[in-house]
């Protein structure tokens, strides 16, 4: 368990260097006046563990830049091995006046997983209105003179993956379809390229209309030879029909024929063993079994659970859905 007296901890992601697990976790000081303010104060904390239970907290490893698209707060990302270095893709918001409504994706590189150097000055990919909602289509709830094209209130949680067949790289991003209604519009945006510095955005990898507004903190994993997509969506971001059909849960899975789908998100089922488990990395333990490691989003219930809990053992059921083991 990783719990800090001084900080709220929430979304996390993990890199495994073969010896240790490196946990990257969003953190904000508890002095900010309540967890609702944590998003504008978020930085990335780094902790190391050999067993996913006992964590050695190493402090902040990535915070806002001096200026630009990521100069206010850093949000959820992912880390992937890239030749002789590690690459982190992260979400960011900036001081430019659009607050949480201007979410961008950036990247940084590291050789030790703690000291990160940003790559370039600009965001990695901007939402393309041919497929994805931008602020030009759904403006923020206040008047602004800022540019709205190419900016989105849901453009985050980048997941970088090496193509298993050697065809370059993929970046999956949590996005909203331009062609569906609120909370029915969650899709997986997809960019691909020969390397992680030359990614081209394309059409989403799934259809909207599954009753989810956001497919957050995407993870595509192969467990015992079977691929599964795991994502987070809080009931606040679902349609009433989806809630009536499958209940109030946060972590979801859907079986997949391959690492990039295709996914029929409408068939997603909840991880019912932990209704509030949120943005929890799905990680293989040293004995080969799998576990979810995350926090519980009980903030809407007025319960403070801003810590990373011990691993929850999981497996896939006969149909390929994630269940507790």
């Amino acid at each position: 368990m990783l719990k800090l007296e001084t900080h709220y901890l929430w979304d996390s992601w993990i890199a495994d260097d073969g010896e240790n697990y490196h946990l990257f976790v969003l953190q904000a000081p508890r002095s900010i006046g309540g967890p609702e303010h944590r998003h504008l104060n978020a930085t990335v904390g780094h902790a190391v563990s050999s067993d996913l239970v006992n964590w050695d907290y190493l402090g902040t490893c990535l915070g806002p830049s001096d200026a630009g698209f990521d100069d206010l707060a850093i949000w959820t990302g992912s880390v992937v091995r890239e030749q002789d270095r590690w690459r982190m893709f992260y979400t960011a918001v900036n001081t430019g006046g659009l607050h949480v409504f201007d979410q961008r994706v950036g990247s940084a590189v590291s050789t030790d997983l703690h000291h990160w150097e940003r790559v370039g000055d600009g965001p990695v990919a901007e939402p393309d209105p041919r497929w994805y909602k931008t602020l030009a289509l759904v403006p923020p709830p206040f008047e602004t003179d800022a540019r709205l094209e190419g900016r989105s209130e849901t453009w985050r949680d980048p997941l970088a993956m090496k193509d298993p067949d050697g065809n370059g790289w993929h970046l999956l991003v949590t996005a909203r379809s331009a062609f569906a209604g609120r909370n029915d519009d969650g899709v997986v945006a997809h960019a691909t390229g020969p390397d992680l510095d030359h990614l081209t955005l394309g059409a989403p990898l799934c259809e909207p209309g599954a009753g989810f507004g956001q497919l957050e903190v995407l993870q595509s994993k192969q467990i015992d030879g079977r691929w599964v997509l795991v994502f987070t969506c809080h009931p606040q971001e679902m349609t009433d029909e989806r809630i009536a059909r499958t209940g109030h849960y946060c972590t979801w899975s859907v079986p997949s024929p391959g690492p990039l789908g295709p996914w029929d998100i409408d068939k997603a089922r909840p991880f019912t063993a932990e209704p509030d488990l949120f943005a929890a990395p799905l990680i293989q333990q040293r004995d080969g079994t799998w576990a979810l490691v995350g926090f519980r989003n009980t903030e809407p219930k007025g319960i403070d659970s801003f810590f990373i809990d011990d691993p929850i053992p999981v497996t896939l059921d006969d149909e390929g859905y994630l269940i507790a083991r």
Binding site: G33, H37, N41, L72
Partner: peptide, 23 residues
């Protein structure tokens, strides 16, 4: 300092303190 943090700097994400956080 606490009220300042809770009411103003936390919600704004602003680098300001009355009573510096040693961190």
């Amino acid at each position: 300092g606490t009220f300042f943090s809770e009411r103003i700097t936390g919600p704004l994400g602003a680098d300001a303190w009355i009573g510096l956080d040693p961190a």
